[in-house]
């Protein structure tokens, strides 16, 4: 009977394997202790009583899911800042390399690269500002005990900020990619361009990780919302 209960609880939290395992072990220990302490003994009735006192598995799973979602939200908030910083470092390293190598832009592409460079700059700083706002917003509020409308509103705002920051960063990385590509044909694939290509790879990786983080938190929020509905 306890095993069935634990299965039901773990299944409801299956979207997070680590949480599911931890909760299962913790609850199992609790229920076994409750059965051992039951004055009647460790029979089926004692198990039933322990489970009844513990509460309905779905209701417990919902509470864990809400707490877990709040934790992941904070992690994503911090990840946004770190990943944007990663893109910034890669960008600056490439610019410094161009300066060291005295790699100038040819006159043919000066106007185009000027326009793309502006798009790159503005979109990057927009992502920085929105990212910081999102991080401060998500770090500022305490995890609420329930799953009320206020919390859902906070989450929606945070997701919007995440999406805006990610969108701006992707535009910036794409612009960087175009600028780097424009510089490449003249020199060919020489060692001189290993640093720009490597820095672009870092930028793309940072943007991709950020997109995956947003996707992950969206999936988690959907799973939690589904649990709340059932």
């Amino acid at each position: 009977m306890i095993s069935d209960y634990l299965e039901a609880l773990a299944a409801a939290l299956s979207f997070d394997r680590t949480l599911s395992q931890r909760v299962r072990q913790e609850v199992e220990d609790h229920l076994r202790q409750a059965v051992d302490a039951d004055p009647v003994g460790g029979g089926l009735e004692a198990q039933q009583r322990a489970i009844a006192n513990f509460g309905e598995p779905h209701a417990i799973a919902v509470q864990f899911a809400v707490v877990s979602l709040a934790q992941q939200t904070k992690r994503v908030g911090a990840a946004i800042i770190l990943l944007i910083a990663g893109v910034f470092v890669a960008m600056k390293a490439r610019v410094a390399w161009y300066a060291i190598m005295r790699c100038a832009i040819s006159d043919d592409i000066k106007i185009v690269s000027g326009i793309i460079g502006s798009i790159d700059r503005y979109s990057f700083w927009v992502s920085v500002i929105i990212g910081i706002v999102g991080w401060v917003y998500v770090s500022g509020y305490r995890i609420v005990a329930g799953s009320g409308a206020a919390y859902r509103k906070q989450l929606r705002r945070f997701f919007l900020l995440c999406a805006a920051a990610t969108g701006s960063l992707v535009i910036s990385v794409v612009s960087d990619g175009v600028l780097t590509t424009l510089r490449l044909p003249g020199a060919g694939l020489s060692a001189e361009f290993l640093v720009p290509i490597f820095s672009m790879a870092i930028e793309i990786a940072c943007a991709a990780v950020l997109v995956l983080q947003i996707r992950g938190i969206t999936q988690r929020a959907t799973a939690t919302a589904a649990l709340l509905k059932t």
Binding site: V23, E26, V27, H30, A34, N53, F54, G55, E56, A59, I60, Q63, F64, V66, V67, S68, A70, Q71, K74, R142, I143, A145
Partner: peptide, 16 residues
Amino acid sequence: LPEGTVYPALHRLEQA
């Protein structure tokens, strides 16, 4: 209170 409600609270306070 239902015993099960204490565990999510413990997790939440740990995160805080």
